[in-house]
């Protein structure tokens, strides 16, 4: 089987010039979207328009911190999007937790759970920064640089395992069989560790950060 590649040429160009985004307005960063969309900065001149449903969207925009509860919905929405699809993390919360670095109910590193194509750093990033990020995304897509969804598909097990660390993936994954299997494995692993766990261990287990991203 040939390895899936991101679109190039006409397809890549069209894909880059017409990004329809599903903005998942989770954190406070969402407040920067309206100015970016309206007359002052006007994102639409790059062909970027907000869309109502993941079915129509190419770009999943995560605007800020994600609680575990929201992560489930984000993953569901991401999996419902048709390919090629891109994820943009927005604000430092998605990079490393930002000011929520020690919060018990938000996730810290989004790229453990979803394949991030581009981060826009800042707390919160100004519209200029957003536009800058988007232009880079567009140029990258035209050249076929971003391949997040391919990484997600190829390392599905890795992502699912990470997701299973923080949430019940059985209900929220489209591929129910795989989710069931990985969920059971993770549970088994977790049960084994629990048998000789100290308080410190329990805390670690609740939020285990796996080392290193897949190659």
């Amino acid at each position: 089987m040939t390895k899936a590649k991101p679109p190039k040429g006409l397809k890549g160009w069209a894909q880059g010039r017409s990004l329809w985004m599903l903005h998942f307005c989770t954190g406070c960063g969402a407040i920067e979207m309206p100015p970016t969309m309206t007359s002052r900065y006007d994102m639409e001149r790059f062909g970027i328009t907000p869309m109502a449903t993941p079915r129509q969207a190419d770009l999943l925009l995560i605007t800020g911190y994600l609680t575990v509860k929201t992560l489930k919905r984000v993953i569901r929405s991401y999996e419902q999007m048709p390919e090629p699809k891109y994820v943009v993390g927005f604000g430092s919360c998605t990079v490393n937790g930002g000011m929520y670095w020690d919060s018990y109910n938000t996730i810290k590193r989004l790229d453990l759970y979803l394949p991030i194509d581009l981060y826009i750093a800042g707390c919160m990033p100004r519209p200029e920064a957003i536009i800058d990020g988007f232009t880079e995304l567009i140029e990258g897509i035209k050249k076929g640089k971003f391949d997040g969804w391919i990484r997600y598909k190829e390392n599905l097990e890795y992502y699912k395992r990470n997701q299973a660390m923080v949430m019940d993936i059985r209900k929220w994954s489209l591929d129910a069989e795989l989710a069931e299997r990985i969920w059971n494995e993770v549970q088994e692993e977790r049960r084994k560790r629990f048998e000789r766990a100290t308080v410190k261990h329990v805390y670690e287990l609740a939020e285990r950060i796996p080392e290193g991203l897949p190659k």
Partner: peptide, 19 residues
């Protein structure tokens, strides 16, 4: 606003069919 280029919807259709 400035608005998208006038041929934007053609790009959209090409993109949609390439999805």
């Amino acid at each position: 606003r400035y608005g998208p280029p006038i041929y934007q919807n053609i790009i959209d259709v090409i993109k949609l069919f390439s999805k």
